[in-house]
Structure formats: structure tokens, C-alpha cells
Design a protein around this nucleic acid. Sequence first.
DNA 1: TAGGCCATCTGGTCCT
DNA 2: AGGACCAGATGGCCTA
Length: 215
Amino acid sequence: MAPHPSGAPTVQGTYETERSFPGASDDERACAASAPPSPARSRGNGAEEEGGGCRGASRKLRTRRGGRSRPKSELALSKQRRSRRKKANDRERNRMHNLNSALDALRGVLPTFPDDAKLTKIETLRFAHNYIWALTQALRIADHSLYGLEAPALPCEELGSQDGGSPGDWGSLYSPVSQAGSLSPAASLEERPGLQAPASPASLRPGALAFSDFL
DNA sequence: TAGGCCATCTGGTCCT
DNA sequence: AGGACCAGATGGCCTA
């Protein structure tokens, strides 16, 4: 399930920055990328746009030339575009790295099992969503039991102890349960087959939940 | 080999 | 003008 068990290969970042399209100039690359999406688009072959296929770039060129600013030479424009693109790429790469860091932090506080299994991005988000929902339900039930008539059926402290704890305990504490008829934390989840809500509050008790229920 | 996941590049759009 | 954000495209890696 996890294609990169040892973590995301972020080391290629710097090297990727310098990576260039073999046999294609920067302008050709820009043209290829600005062309309408097509399966034929290839990273290394921008030659076919050389003639008139680069509408976006030419339009930009026109608007720039038409401005009141001092006209620049093609070379200067090309250099400026290249520089801006490179900076934008760096920022975008950094932004995605930050996003991944946040995702890793989220993984860190989620009870996962086994140790070597790294949740994918979408799994992490779904798991977190359902896990939060389950904890919310646990608290609600605990409040009811505190002021209500019945003894607590859900061990909140046990759920809480899973936070950052041993992933293996999570699986051993709860046994598999059918997800059929499970209550959804949000109606939107029910519309999306992939987003499964955890078990219903009634099943939020020891031996009633499996790790997979949160995915 | 097909499919899933991921990182990266890129242009467009919106905001400051 | 420049930065942030977004979505599409692409190629690499891995697994069933």
C-alpha cells in the first residue's frame, strides 16, 4: 500500500531544480506547458510548438510589449521568465514540502499499526477525520455516562492512551466489526464510498473497533 | 504489466 | 509585481 515505506524521496529536490528538459529551450518548455492538456504532451519534446502552438506565451508577450514599460529584448524577457519560473518552482516545491511535513506531523499523532506501515496522504486525512470523530463521540459518551444513569461503556482513557502510543495496542484493543450501518460523522461521507466513517457510537467500546474502521 | 502513489514542473488565478 | 494557491500533466518507483 505504501510505495515508499522508508519515507518520501524528498532528497531529489535540489537535483530536480537543476534538471532540464534535454533538447528543449526554456521557451519551448513554457510553450509545451501552456498548451492545452493533451496526452501527447511530452516533457522532452517541445519542438512542435515552435511555430504557432504557443498561444499563451505569445499573448503574454503581446500584452507585455503593449505595456507602457520600457520594451525589453527577447533575451532579457526570456531570462526574466526563466528566473521567475525557477523561483516559482522553488517556492512551490517548498510549499509542498511544508504540506508534507504537516502531513507527517499528523501521522505522528495518529495511532497507526504496524510500525512499518506508512499511511498514504489520503489515508492519513481520512484516518484523522474519522479518528477525531471517534474521539468526539467517546467524549460525548463519557459525558453522558458521567451525568447519566449508566456506567461508562467507553473507556475514554483507553482511547486517549492510544494517542501516540504503541500502534500495536490499537489493533489488539479492538476487534474487527462490520461497518454496515455505521453512523457517519458527516452526511458528505456517505456520498463517498472511499470515506468510511468509523463504527457507530454504540460500537465504541473495547472489542468493537478495528484500526481499519478509521480508514 | 497495470495501477497506485508520489514529487515536480507549469500556467492560471487571486490576493497583497 | 510578486507570492500563494491550485489543478493538470508527466515521469519515476513500487507492488500485486
